[in-house]
Design a protein around this nucleic acid. Structure first.
Length: 110
RNA sequence: UGAGUAAAUUAUACAAUCGCAUGCCUAGCAUGAGGAAAGUCCGAGCUCCAUAGAGCAGGGUGCCGGGUAACCCCCGGUGAGGGUGACCUCAAGGACAGUGCAACAGAAAGAAACCGCCCCGCACCCAAGGUGCGAGGUAAGGAUGGAAAGGUGAGGUAAGAGCUCACCGGCAAUCAGGCGACUGGUUGGCCAUGUAAACCCCACCCGGAGCAAGACCAAAAAAGGACCUUGGAGUGGCUGCUCGUCACGGUCCAAAUGGUAGGUCGCUUGAGUCUGCCGGCAACGGCAAACCUAGAUAGAUGAUUGUUUAAUACAGAACUCGGCUUAUGUAUUUACUCACCAA
RNA sequence: GCGCUAUAGCCAAGUGGUAAGGCACAGGUCUGCAACACCUAGAUCUCCAGUUCGAAUCUGGAUGGCGCCU
C-alpha cells in the first residue's frame, strides 16, 4: 500500500472537487499517472482527542489493506473521517467505505 | 456489624491468524506507549549565544532542620486552625524604618466624650426631689462597625478607670531544655487595631533562547554603479536601561522581493531499572550483583476468533530526566479511629 | 516549544468599597399609526479555591478561545 505523504499531493486531490460522502466518511478521488493507486488518511483536529484520531486512522488503514487487491489502479484516494466517526465502530466504517467505493465504481470487475 | 481516616497494589490479561515499526547472527525471531505519555506550572541536564560578564531595574522564594544535580518539590519537626477521634489543612519573616488604605455606618477608625453616669455652682418649682443653664470628672453601659483601645470575676469609687488583686492573653528581662523553629519556669511594668497574596524593609536565589536548539553532507542562490567614513559613529546579538563585549563598513540608485527545503547526526546507557545487604524515624544515601527496556519523521500498536466473572475508565511517546497539578475504571489488601452489640 | 485572552445578545470602560457607556432586544410615555426623543428593565464579571472586614480587581489551580516559531 502506497501512502500519500506530501501536503501538496493532498491539496491537489482536494482541488479536484471529485468527492463523495456519508455519515462517517468523505472520500476524495483523483486520477494519477502511475500504474498503482495511492491512499491518504486524515482525521482533522475537529476530532478533539488524539487517541480517537489515531484509532480511526488505523481502522481506515486496516479496511483499505484488506481490500487493496480489489481496488482499481491509477487513482489517488483520500479518506477523511468526519466527526461522527468517533462513535462508529469498525463494522460501520467498513460498510461506509464499501458503499461509497461501489457508488464511485472503483472496485475491479463490477 | 455500621460509619470513617490513612496508605498501598492493580491499569486491554492469555492464546492463535493476518498486518505495521525498529533491531539482528536477515526470513523468522526479539522488542514495541502511560500512570498520568496530558497541562506546560516549577526545577535541571544538553545545545547555541562570550569561559556567561558588571550596575540599576525586574522577577522568585520566605517558621526550623534535613534530603536532592536542582526546585514554587519531598521528609521529619515547631506554631496556628478544624475534627469526639484516627487524622487533616496552612505563601506561616517584619506593622515602634517609612508611606498608604480601612467605603458605608458611627460622636470617634488611632488615641475618641454623641447619648448616658457622677459631682459642684446658679436659676425655677410647695418639700423629698425634679427641670434648665454653666464648669468639670468618667471609657462601666447604649448605638455603628469586620475591628472601639487587653478579657472574665472581685475589691475600690461621687461615678468610674490595671486604680488594686486572682486567673487567662500579650510584651520585656532572666534561667533551664532543644542544632533550631520553639517550649517550660521565675520576675517586672501594666501595654496604641487590622492590612505586607498594598507599596515597602530584611535574608537568600535568578543571564537569554530553546531539539522547529544545534552540527555536518548534497543541491540552489549570491553579479553592478555612485557617494560618505578612517577610528569615531551606526546596525544587529546578549529580555528592559547604562556599561561592557562580539559580529558587520554604511547610505542611495538599478535589478529581484522568488525557488528549493532532501539526507545523516543530535535520538536514547541514563542523576537508568531491578534484587539483596547496610545506615537513617523518614525523604533518601552507600555497597554488591544482574539487566538493556519505543525511537518514528505525514509520524509505527489495528482487525478477527477463542478462554476466564470481567477485559471495561482517563487517555497515545516526538530531546531526556526530577517534581507539581489535573482526568480516571475495576478489584483487593494493610494499619488505625468512633459508635453499638456479645463474651 | 513559546505566548495572549475571557465583563449583558454585540462592542466595551472599570488601579480593593453601589459593575460606567454605546448598539441591539423587551416594556412604558409621546403619536391616528410609526420613526425620532425620553424613561425603565435585563450581569453567577468563564469556573473552583485562597488572602482580606470586603475581590470583576490580588494569589493559586481548572476550562474555553486565539496567535507565533517550520
Amino acid at each position: 500500500m502506497i501512502i500519500i505523504k506530501k501536503n501538496k499531493d493532498y491539496k491537489s486531490v482536494y482541488d479536484c472537487n471529485n468527492s463523495i460522502s456519508d455519515y462517517n466518511l468523505v472520500i476524495f478521488i483523483k486520477k494519477n499517472d502511475y500504474k498503482y493507486s495511492r491512499f491518504g488518511f486524515t482525521a482533522a483536529k475537529k476530532i478533539k482527542k488524539a487517541v480517537d484520531r489515531n484509532l480511526i486512522r488505523r481502522r481506515l488503514k486496516e479496511i483499505v489493506r484488506q481490500r487493496e487487491h480489489k481496488i482499481k489502479e491509477g487513482y489517488d484516494i483520500v479518506l477523511m473521517a468526519r466527526v461522527n466517526a468517533v462513535e462508529s465502530d469498525y463494522r460501520s466504517l467498513e460498510s461506509s467505505f464499501v458503499k461509497l467505493m461501489k457508488r464511485k465504481n472503483l472496485f475491479k470487475g463490477m
